[in-house]
Design a protein around this nucleic acid. Structure first.
Length: 110
DNA sequence: CCTATGACCGTGA
DNA sequence: CTCACGGCCATAG
């Protein structure tokens, strides 16, 4: 990732990826939930940052598509990326409602 | 150290 | 329901 300084929480990225990898197929979590699991209740944005930086080779090692915005909305801008995420989710049996994930059915249990 | 940016979130109009 | 605003976190320059 980046030259993590002495106190730089490079582990943050790893922690994010680990948490995301922990999300079982067919289930989705919000950025906020992931942040909460990491002990950063208000670090949802940072989680998004980590996933964004993930784009590339590691994208296949981390099920980034299982992370959506609050309310099951796709946070990615409409386009190829958003469509890809929906496709991957559907492939796992996730039900989409008007482009949004049915959180009541697939949301991660607190 | 300070400013700017972003795959966020909750609240209020 | 949609739109705008402010707050939070981590990173890059």
């Amino acid at each position: 990732v980046t030259a993590a300084g002495p106190r730089a929480p490079a582990g943050f990225f790893s922690a994010v990826y680990a948490a995301v990898r922990a999300i079982p197929a067919g289930r989705v979590a919000t950025y906020g939930q992931v942040a909460r699991v990491l002990g950063k209740p208000r670090g949802a944005r940072a989680v998004g940052w980590a996933l964004r930086a993930l784009a590339g080779a590691r994208e296949r090692a981390v099920p980034w598509h299982r992370v959506v915005a609050a309310g099951g909305r796709i946070s990615l801008p409409e386009g190829p990326a958003a469509e890809r995420q929906r496709r991957l989710l559907r492939a796992e049996g996730v039900r989409l409602r008007q482009g949004r994930v049915d959180m009541g059915r697939h949301g991660m249990p607190a």
